[in-house]
């Protein structure tokens, strides 16, 4: 895994795409971190609700945000709106479960660039992330 990471670092130079992971469960954040790391991406930070996500977005200006939809304090849709008002070109991918199609549609209308379905399958996550980052 480390070898792939180093190779991609060489490929992309020192500026590797940075991702902000937003999910209220520590387990899902760990899983996403592992998947993104295996694809050679850098994790800029992790937030466990929408409010924290907006703060971390302002601080780190990540290249991409993976945003869970249902979270306490501030949900993913609200956080998406705030992030888009800060940076209209922000790239946000929504993380959704089967059966939440209506929420995904709402998020896409608000400017989300894509979505990934829970339970996650690593190849699909990597494909969507790379597509939104313009790497494929």
């Amino acid at each position: 895994m480390l070898v792939i990471f180093r190779n991609l670092k060489i490929l992309w130079g020192e500026k590797m795409p940075k991702v902000l992971i937003v999910d209220d469960t520590a387990f899902m954040r760990k899983l996403l971190r592992n998947i993104l790391f295996s694809a050679g991406l850098d994790v800029a930070g992790e937030a466990e609700n929408g409010k924290e996500a907006v703060e971390l977005f302002k601080q780190h200006k990540p290249d991409l945000v993976t945003m869970d939809i249902i979270m306490p304090e501030m949900n993913g849709i609200e956080a998406l709106k705030k992030i888009k008002s800060i940076e209209p070109n922000a790239k946000v991918i929504m993380c959704t479960a089967v059966g939440q199609e209506q929420m995904v549609k709402a998020a896409i209308k608000l400017g989300a660039k894509g979505y990934i379905i829970k339970p996650f399958q690593a190849p699909k996550v990597i494909e969507e992330v790379k597509k939104v980052l313009g790497l494929i």
């Binding site: 895994m1 592992n34 998947i35 996650f120």
Partner: peptide
């Protein structure tokens, strides 16, 4: 179970 579904190998499962 979720990690296996996601396609992670044993080493990654152990570490997570």
């Amino acid at each position: 179970l979720t990690l296996i579904y996601s396609g992670l190998d044993s080493a990654s499962v152990e570490s997570i």
